[in-house]
């Protein structure tokens, strides 16, 4: 399909839509394990806000820095800043994850920074699986920047792929941060509806409250440029639940 330049908000809506076929419907944000471990239903909103203060800081910060790294790769090749020149102006594969372009090495460094801040192995594994799904979408929708490859590697985590897409397709840094936050909240809220019967409309309210909780961090996160500056917000309880989730028998959700 021919890529057309669309505004940042349209890209954000596309990427945040749970109907987007990138394999994310198997994820609950470890909510399944948390509920089994005794997290009361009425504290799920607090759980979502706790994720905003920890996991989402890492994910959103990683995405922003990856966007910057991919944009720098483009600039070094004289293809301009993200979103300014339209997707068609790009040299084929110059900044694609997996190519030999400058962007690829920089993205790998961002991925390492993300790994160091994502200590639970199941969290890294699902991050990679979701990154692969998103990369598959990118290769179809933006083939000029994400060329088909022999083999399937390298495997980059979701926030890094998201940042590379943002740089290429023109998603602004603030929209990118809010997208990561919304996606995390909606993942937990949607899983809640399958795990515990309740009012779906109330779950929508929880999503907005969680997004609001991240708002104070948006300016700072969206200005990050260096991998070393990505927040390293540990969340031992969430990491424990993510680990427990990965070995749950008869689970509904993979993660």
């Amino acid at each position: 399909m021919p890529p057309t330049a669309v505004p940042s908000v349209s890209l954000a809506m596309l990427l945040a839509d749970s109907r987007l076929p990138v394999g994310a419907h198997v994820v609950s944000g470890a909510l399944e394990a948390a509920l089994l471990d005794g997290l009361p239903r009425e504290q799920v909103g607090a759980y979502m806000r706790a994720r905003m203060a920890t996991i989402v800081q890492v994910e959103a910060g990683t995405a922003v820095v990856a966007r910057q790294a991919a944009a720098a790769g483009r600039a070094a090749r004289g293809t301009g800043a993200p979103g300014e020149d339209g997707p068609d102006a790009d040299a084929p594969g110059a900044d694609a994850p997996g190519s030999d372009g400058l962007g690829a090495a920089a993205l790998a460094e961002v991925a390492r920074a993300w790994e160091a801040r994502t200590p639970a192995r199941p969290q890294r594994e699902i991050g990679i699986a979701l990154g692969d799904g998103l990369a598959r979408l990118a290769r179809t929708v933006w083939p000029e920047a994400f060329p088909a490859r022999a083999g399937r590697g390298p495997h980059l985590p979701r926030p890094v792929v998201l940042g590379a897409i943002a740089a290429h397709a023109g998603l602004t840094a603030v929209d990118l941060v809010r997208l990561v936050a919304y996606d995390d909240a909606q993942t937990v809220a949607s899983a809640l509806l399958k795990l515990e019967p309740g009012d779906p409309l109330a779950a929508a309210g929880l999503v907005l409250e969680a997004c609001a909780a991240l708002e104070p961090s948006v300016p700072e996160l969206s200005r990050l440029t260096s991998p070393t500056a990505i927040p390293a917000a540990g969340a031992p309880q969430i990491e424990e639940w993510a680990t427990a989730q990965s070995v749950l028998p008869r689970r509904l959700f993979r993660a």
Partner: peptide, 9 residues
């Protein structure tokens, strides 16, 4: 059908 990502991978 709607999202074959995991199976295709």
């Amino acid at each position: 059908r709607d999202d074959v990502t995991a199976n295709l991978a």
